[in-house]
């Protein structure tokens, strides 16, 4: 009886049948859609897709466009600042909350609350807060500091930082919660041992605790990074890409050219570049992360 083991293919047949829809979705919708987009980015499709191949023309135009370069630059600034600040602020907040303080639940709720708001609401709220005539600037001027200037949304040079403030306000709470969960997973014995050895608390955090919660950092990083690449609604709600084109981002460029500009080819080329940028980051990382483990 035992010799008649079922073939590998038919083992767990029910589970495999149940997985078929998901496999098909992944293959057809995700992979298929991606390939389709990449292929059509080499055509001069306008309003409707058409198979008229023009080589790298769309890409040449893309990289020759001022607006695309501004968008890429903005994404890099926003991305770098977002990763650094949300990790640092999130971790510091989590470490502070981890000191067995009173009203921890209340603080946690307050800090996580912005995450419950959509980017559209966040954008609108901060648009008003940063409006020089109604927001922070006017409040501080009303308090007597007449020369106080703070209108990032109307200054092309710093507008992306105005957006960054809103992004951090919205996203840091989640990072804090993830970190806090990680910190809670640390065995209290480790703290005791560190204290016995006379290691100062900050050193314990940096050299012992952070390496121990590395998986949490990686999860958090992936969540932050995906939020950065798809940055779109915050910009639309807060600045509309303005002043001028100063706060444009790649996702907005893609949308504008695909739909408003009725130039699918250009939009596909831009979205392919976005995909490429993501792959450039993910492939080496995945290789290090998963390739390394097999050898162990």
């Amino acid at each position: 009886m035992a010799a008649a083991r079922p073939l590998g293919l038919f083992r767990n047949i029910n589970a495999k049948i149940a997985a078929i829809p998901m496999v098909l979705t992944a293959l057809v919708v995700f992979t298929g859609g991606t390939i389709w987009t990449v292929v059509y980015s080499f055509t001069n499709s306008k309003l409707l897709p058409r198979e008229k191949f023009v080589g790298f023309q769309q890409y040449e135009r893309l990289w020759g466009t001022e607006r695309w370069n501004v968008a890429i630059e903005n994404l890099l600034i926003y991305g770098a600042c977002m990763v650094v600040f949300s990790l640092v602020i999130g971790f510091v907040l989590a470490a502070l909350l981890d000191q067995k303080i009173r009203f921890e639940n209340t603080f946690r709720t307050i800090l996580l609350y912005p995450f419950a708001l959509s980017f559209i609401v966040t954008g609108l709220v901060w648009q008003w807060l940063l409006n020089p005539d109604f927001g922070i600037q006017s409040v501080i001027r009303a308090l007597g500091w007449e020369s106080f200037d703070f209108d990032p949304l109307y200054n092309a040079d710093i507008v992306i930082y105005g957006v960054l403030i809103a992004g951090l306000w919205q996203g840091t709470g989640l990072v804090m919660c993830l970190m806090l969960a990680g910190l809670r997973g640390i065995d209290q014995e480790i703290w005791k041992a560190a204290r016995v050895d006379g290691i100062p608390m900050w050193k314990t955090y940096i050299f012992i605790v952070i390496p121990m919660i590395r998986p949490v950092f990686i999860t958090t990083l992936v969540i932050i990074a995906s939020g950065i690449v798809r940055l779109y609604d915050l910009i639309v709600a807060q600045t509309g890409g303005g002043p001028g084109i100063a706060s444009d981002v790649p996702a907005k460029y893609v949308y504008d050219y695909m739909f408003q500009g009725q130039n699918l080819g250009q939009g596909f080329a831009a979205s392919t570049m976005m995909l490429l940028a993501v792959l450039v980051v993910i492939i080496p990382w995945a290789y290090l992360e998963f390739g390394g483990k097999k050898r162990v």
């Binding site: 466009t65 607006r67 001028g244 050219y257 500009g261």
Partner: peptide
């Protein structure tokens, strides 16, 4: 075309 108009929009708004 709307494509050209979009490019002009980008140029002049900036």
């Amino acid at each position: 075309t709307e494509d050209t108009n979009n490019q002009l929009n980008d140029l002049f708004v900036q």
